[in-house]
């Protein structure tokens, strides 16, 4: 009888533990998932003329993101920004983004990432005259990548390549996508931006990541508590068998829960 009571009590506790641990695991996973952005892409092989795959006033088709494109035209060095906090080979620097006017696009400006520049270096001027550029086509960077709580940046600096933000700085018309220049190779001190990986998983939101870890810790703590309860229960039962310190430790429960020691008797 008492054994059955004990067993059912522990069964209930174990079920509660399972629920709590699953909830913590799930909530932690959910937060962790929110903290990351995964980008998987598989653009077609080969180099396409830019205007064949992306035109002003249109979004970059998803399957063309990361596609290598070729574009002819000229830089408009009056319209230039630097994108802050860009890492390359473990070093912090900026991307230099200059407006490029492709021939045949009726004056629409295409943001071109000319290269990566180590922090603090002076920006070299964009080349004059007709250029032929081969690079990777990218879509405007999502606002979700913005660091929350960052103050306004000095003029000429941006946090990410957002077509909406560039529109207000550069005036329309503007391409929605942008190109990361691969060829011709940028001249020093500019460094060619590394080719974008086809699958990228990055933690972009440390707050959510911290919440995720916290949920998992709560789950582990619940297990720890449960194990400790079992051990204390065992010790109590052993003490009871000894017949020592039997009743003296039992205090009446204010909350009405029956102590396992009483059940044992």
């Amino acid at each position: 009888m008492s054994g059955q009571l004990l067993t059912s009590r522990w069964a209930v506790r174990f079920l509660v533990l399972l629920v709590v641990v699953s909830a913590c695991a799930w909530l932690g996973w959910w937060q962790w998932d929110r903290a990351r952005v995964e980008i998987v892409r598989s653009p077609p092989e080969g180099v396409a003329p830019l205007l064949d795959v992306h035109r002003p006033g249109q979004v970059v088709p998803e399957e063309q993101i990361g596609r290598r494109v070729i574009v002819k035209g000229s830089f408009d060095s009056a319209r230039e920004v630097t994108v802050v906090d860009r890492q390359q080979a473990g070093r912090l620097g900026v991307w230099v983004v200059t407006a490029f006017l492709p021939s045949g696009s009726n004056g629409a400006a295409l943001p071109v990432v000319r290269g990566w520049l180590p922090q603090g270096e002076a920006i070299p001027a964009a080349p004059d005259g007709q250029q032929r550029i081969v690079g990777w086509l990218e879509s405007t960077e999502p606002d979700a990548l913005r660091e929350r709580g960052r103050g306004p940046l000095p003029t000429g600096q941006v946090e990410l390549i957002s077509s909406a933000e560039l529109l207000s700085l550069w005036q329309p018309p503007l391409f929605q996508g942008f190109v990361i220049q691969q060829l011709p190779e940028p001249e020093p001190p500019l460094v060619g931006v590394e080719s974008p990986a086809l699958s990228v998983t990055a933690v972009v939101n440390w707050q959510n990541a911290a919440y995720g870890v916290q949920w998992w810790l709560f789950g582990i703590f619940a297990i720890f508590w449960f194990v400790r309860m079992i051990r204390v229960d065992r010790e109590d039962q052993a003490a009871m068998v000894d017949g020592s310190n039997k009743v003296s430790l039992d205090t009446p429960d204010a909350t009405g829960e029956i102590d396992t020691r009483e059940v044992g008797e």
């Binding site: 709560f218 703590f221 909350t255």
Partner: peptide, 22 residues
Amino acid sequence: YMLYLVTVFDLSFRLKWPLSKG
């Protein structure tokens, strides 16, 4: 809050609280 839980945990076993109280 985690540290708070640890102190509650510690106290509850020392004082032999029922689970519900902890």
